[in-house]
């Protein structure tokens, strides 16, 4: 097993490198003088010259890449001129907040999504199936930002059950219950869409599995129907569902960007959008690479979980 983990980590290295190359190339598409673009309104001639030296912006593209990569590997992601702060510090802090939000949403949508899919399949064409199908359809058709806005309107403003925005109260203790009440609406809004996708996939994976021969064998052995569904069918269906959970994590992270904006959550998504609007290039670069790298590692964890589940995968 350790061998398998090491192998997966090793195979992630080219992917990570590839990510840096892709980000670098995309950024290289920016028209005009890169230093001026990066510095924006701080583009004084001295600053421009300093930046050119630090980042090697006057050197050929390939060398620039390696300088940038070398810096990153040492933890230096550059400095955000708009915020006057090292990129890595800003990214880490904001990513923390995003993790709380996206992590909660991910757990919610995975649990509810799989459960909904299984119940839907076991109950095919029954009322539970129809109800779940309808809610799921709604969930995947509604833009998450719109849903967030409506939830604020309804729960926060009209019913006053939850705060309108932010991660922490402006005044008052920053404890777990405060976090929970601030987290509730955004996490649910973020989870809704992802739950829908997982529920559908879980449902079709279960239906597919329930038609397999080994299900008939289980029935022929006299296994009670409950055992057939939850022990035999679900375990086999998880083999198809777990990789989807990995992809869903990506969707949840992506959706987090919108939710962070709507709920003013101090996360990395909001940071990136602001950075783009302000043309804070280094922050965008650093943020994208960092989040993508975390996502790659997360997917490796998903692969390992998959191999623990499915003995046919050679470890």
């Amino acid at each position: 097993m350790t061998g398998y983990i090491l192998k997966r980590l090793l195979s992630a290295v080219p992917v990570l490198l590839g990510i840096t190359v892709i980000v670098f190339l995309i950024m290289a598409m920016i028209p005009g003088d890169p230093a001026t673009a990066i510095l924006g309104s701080y583009a004084t001639p001295e600053n421009v010259e300093k930046l050119n030296r630090d980042l090697g912006l006057d050197k050929p593209l390939v060398q620039q890449y390696f300088i940038w990569l070398g810096n990153m590997l040492q933890g230096d992601f550059g400095t955000s001129f708009a915020l006057n702060r090292p990129v890595i510090d800003e990214v880490l802090e904001r990513f923390n907040a995003t993790l709380v939000l996206a992590g909660t949403a991910f757990v919610l949508c995975s649990l509810f999504g799989v459960a909904a899919g299984v119940i839907s399949a076991a109950n095919q064409y029954g009322w539970a199936d129809k109800a779940i199908t309808f809610v799921v359809l709604l969930g995947i058709s509604i833009p998450s930002f719109f849903l967030g806005m409506m939830m604020i309107l309804f729960f926060a403003v009209n019913l006053r059950l939850f705060p309108v925005s932010g991660m922490w109260p402006i005044y008052g203790a920053r404890d777990l219950s405060a976090l929970a009440s601030h987290l509730a609406l955004p996490a649910i809004a973020l989870a809704v869409v992802a739950t829908g996708v997982i529920a559908r996939l879980a449902r079709s994976a279960m239906l597919e599995v329930l038609r397999q021969d080994f299900i008939r064998t289980a029935r022929a052995k006299g296994v009670p129907e409950r055992g057939v569904i939850w022990r035999h069918a679900l375990k086999a269906a998880m083999v198809s569902i777990i990789p989807i959970l990995g992809i869903q994590a990506g969707f949840v992270l992506s959706g987090a960007v919108y939710i962070e904006i709507v709920f003013q959550w101090p996360g990395v998504g909001r940071m990136l959008v602001d950075a783009i609007l302000k043309r804070d290039i280094l922050l965008v670069q650093g943020g994208v690479v960092f989040v993508a790298a975390c996502y790659v590692l997360f997917n490796i964890a998903v692969d390992v979980a998959q191999s623990l589940l499915d003995p046919r995968i050679k470890t």
Binding site: V15, L272, V288, V291, Y295
Partner: peptide
């Protein structure tokens, strides 16, 4: 391998990066 690398991004990151480069 190339496809895997593109899929290694949560989709919005890639979209944001492209828009960042090309401009809104």
């Amino acid at each position: 391998r190339g496809v895997d690398m593109l899929m290694a991004f949560p989709y919005i990151l890639l979209a944001l990066a492209i828009v960042a480069a090309l401009g809104p």
